[in-house]
């Protein structure tokens, strides 16, 4: 089971990113989130979500999901845009293992773009 993202439901509100940051830091911060909205291509209206898992970087693009092995990304780049630059240094998703209610990102997504499968 893992966190999944429907990029066409996503509205780039960053609630998931904020929730993940809280899970990591017990404060509101965005620097350690393992789920990140990439949002630097404003003028193209192109945005999506990147999730770091133990072995994969999941890039939820509007046109579909792309899964990259972490090692391949480290060697070849291509892990998204500036929003995701530090992703490889961050801890991987642990499904908020300390929470009885499961991943906080899923719980706070207002449009159910984040789900478990």
């Amino acid at each position: 089971m893992g966190v999944k993202i429907d990029p066409l439901k996503c509205t780039a509100c960053m609630a998931c990113e904020l929730a993940c940051g809280y899970h990591r830091d017990d404060a509101f911060a965005l620097l350690s989130s393992c789920i990140v909205v990439y949002r630097t291509r404003d003028k193209k209206d192109y945005f999506g979500v990147i999730l770091k898992e133990e072995e994969d970087l999941v890039i939820a693009r509007p046109e579909g999901l792309e899964v990259k092995r972490i090692g391949a990304v480290e060697e070849g780049g291509g892990g998204g845009d500036a929003s995701a630059k530090p992703m490889l240094l961050r801890e991987a998703c642990d499904l908020c293992e300390d929470r009885d209610d499961g991943p906080l990102c899923k719980q706070v997504c207002p449009v159910d773009a984040v789900y478990l499968d």
Partner: peptide
């Protein structure tokens, strides 16, 4: 597409 403001449902 439609976009939300930060943390806005």
């Amino acid at each position: 597409r439609h976009r939300a403001n930060f943390n806005t449902p």
